[in-house]
Design a protein around this nucleic acid. Structure first.
Lengths: 232, 232
DNA sequence: GGCTACCTCTTGTATAGACAAGTATAGCCT
DNA sequence: AGGCTATACTTGTCTATACAAGAGGTAGCC
């Protein structure tokens, strides 16, 4: 059963998503929603506070609650598609699929999916090359409930990224970016010289309220960098 | 008057910040804190939930609440203030100013400022520490036309970042993020063990149509990470 | 007009109590 | 030994109530 504050959030999100409540529109007060949805004021307060923390609503004590102006919210690190990125640079993208299998999630992996240890998850391991030179090692775990057909995908024709956004709309993304020394296996697969560090991007995505994927991407330090330019 | 949930958060942050509760340490249960701090359970719950949302605590229903094992982290898109970031985690921020001087820009540096070679620019080099441990080496060049008073700033009282946004509103930001091996000097200043990589963030900022700063930030790979969470 | 006092509606914080759900463990039974 | 259950403790959610604080309007006064 979905928690009640989620019901309240969905009610508000529905009106925003459909366009019925544009930016700046006044949202009903807490007491009005109490009557309308038959929940307590604390529950409405929690729902609106969370939406406010997430930047979707603006609240002013004594005045009311309003739909926030979302155009100001710029995109951080994009969830990018390595294949199109390479092609945009004029390079030739090739991929080598090393593993594509169902495995039992254990320990940390099960926890990151909020699943019971031993639950089945899909696992893929592939190397992406630009003009034959490895630039990304993609170690990905996928929730079968979100993408049941994952094991049957032909990854030489589409990327995991492309497939996943088609079957499951992205709801939320979490990134962690670190500098690490590669393990011997990672170093070998990326054909890296000894002593060179890696950028490691760890990413989890959510779809339909569930964790959809949990992935690690390794980039050779000398062949890849993240860059961006924006106006605050 | 400070809200009571803040009192609870400060109590927990104090123990984390002082090192009394290391990563993985079990935090007292909600009911224990209720008795200890004489507040209601809902207030303790709010405090711990917020710290959990902020990534400082990990909570597992039926088990307990634990200090999260997260190294330093920051959102790569934000131009962040290292001092307030450390203090938000409950840590103690100290800074050591190694250089603060006017130098002649040559070659690349002059070009990145769109200035003639030999033009004067301000240069600062400082190490930021969290509880005495170096977490960031800041190597910054500043356009004197934008911040003429830069050399007179007391950086033990404010950060370069703070000062610059006060005297010059940010117009645009460009950054590049790489994994590199530190030079001997960088490694020594950050007190890093041999063989450990660095995250290097290179950033240029614009203000009033001119390049305002050109900086490099080095972070020890084992003590810092960039993280972010967002909805596409 | 301009001012103050008051009233009302809003969100913000806090409490006590309740039940649900997740997890670990001790101890019992087969 | 292996499997089961009862239990104790944890966090998660929800309610009803209360008071505080912020903001705006209005009536009445000078």
């Amino acid at each position: 059963m979905m928690p009640r504050y989620q019901k309240v959030k969905d009610h508000i999100l529905g009106h925003i998503g459909s366009g019925a409540w544009p930016s700046g529109h006044r949202v009903p007060s807490e007491n009005e929603l109490v009557k309308l949805l038959s929940v307590s004021r604390m529950t409405v307060n929690r729902a609106m506070k969370e939406l406010s923390d997430e930047g979707l609503l603006t609240r002013v004590a004594g005045v009311g609650t309003f739909v926030a102006d979302r155009t100001a919210h710029a995109n951080p690190l994009e969830v990018h598609n390595i294949a199109s990125e390479i092609r945009n640079r004029g390079g030739e993208h090739t991929v080598q699929v090393l593993r594509l299998e169902a495995v039992d999630a254990k320990g940390d992996m099960a926890r990151s999916f909020n699943a019971a240890p031993g639950a089945t998850v899909f696992h893929s391991l592939m190397v992406h090359c630009e003009n034959g030179v490895p630039v990304q090692l993609e170690d990905r775990y996928v929730n079968p409930a979100i993408a049941p057909g994952y094991l049957g995908v032909d990854f030489t024709r589409t990327t995991a990224h492309q497939y996943l956004i088609e079957v499951a709309p992205l709801q939320e993304v979490e990134h962690i970016l670190r500098a690490v020394m590669p393990t011997a296996q990672v170093r070998r697969l990326l054909k890296m010289p000894e002593g060179e560090p890696c950028l490691m991007l760890q990413r989890r995505t959510w779809s339909g309220g569930q964790v959809a994927t949990s992935s690690r991407f390794y980039y050779p330090g000398s062949r890849y960098e993240f860059s961006g330019r924006f106006k605050p």
